[in-house]
Nucleic acid binder design. Structure first.
Lengths: 111, 111
DNA sequence: CATACATTCAACCAAACGGTTGAATATATT
DNA sequence: AATATATTCAACCGTTTGGTTGAATGTATG
């Protein structure tokens, strides 16, 4: 089952504010690693690692040109995650536990 | 900003297949810790810890009755996550990088 | 060629994670 | 009172994570 692992990677990548900020930056266009790293109060290396996580999750694509690497945002994993959440929410619904269910039925009967 | 941290917790909790399976189980109704743990090939303690993560993320509510703890699924965090993803996707869109944008414009010009 | 620049690799570190086992606590049952 | 059951607490362990610093690599530029 390759789908869940992909989902794992996507959600893990998104669960970090630094990585979300990186994606946001990239969502408005390509940028080089150093450019992406600049606003963050951490070393270039740290950001480089975050980018690697995003790449593993296929949320970021890398295009090498000479010594510079251009990073771009890929929307597919987020699309897939949105799809999973929508389906799951549909399945799980706002499922009521037994007691609430009972109360709701009683309430309906009174009308 | 309390919203991102909540989102962090939600996404982290959802990024694990065991925890997703626990939620799925609970989505069809309340269950005790031992019941929830049974299907998993791991110790009760391990599952107990997973439940704690889900509780911190408010995806699971606990109702104590004597020595047993009844767990139930709460949909709010998933709703919030879905909302965030939808908004974000809207904002970020399927943003095209510069090259693709160019090609697309050329393509449009040809017609 | 020498030097600056963009990026990663490698080693290290502390903290968190996901699991284990064993003991503790609290509640039921006999 | 003794025992069984439901659950957590505590300590431990190996791996991963998120960060650091310093060196290496590859590519431009003077």
């Amino acid at each position: 089952m390759p789908i869940p692992q992909t989902l794992d990677r996507t959600l893990t990548a998104l669960a970090d504010p630094t990585r979300r900020a990186i994606l946001q930056r990239l969502s408005s266009g390509e940028a080089r690693v150093t450019e992406v790293a600049r606003p963050f109060g951490m070393s270039l290396n740290a950001v480089s690692k975050h980018i690697l996580v995003l790449e593993r999750a296929k949320l970021v694509k890398r295009r090498r040109v000479g010594r510079e690497h251009f990073l771009s945002y890929r929307s597919e994993p987020l699309d897939a995650a949105a799809k999973w959440i929508a389906e799951t929410r549909n399945f799980w619904g706002t499922r009521l536990d037994a007691l609430e269910q009972l109360l709701r039925e009683e309430d309906a009967a009174k009308r």
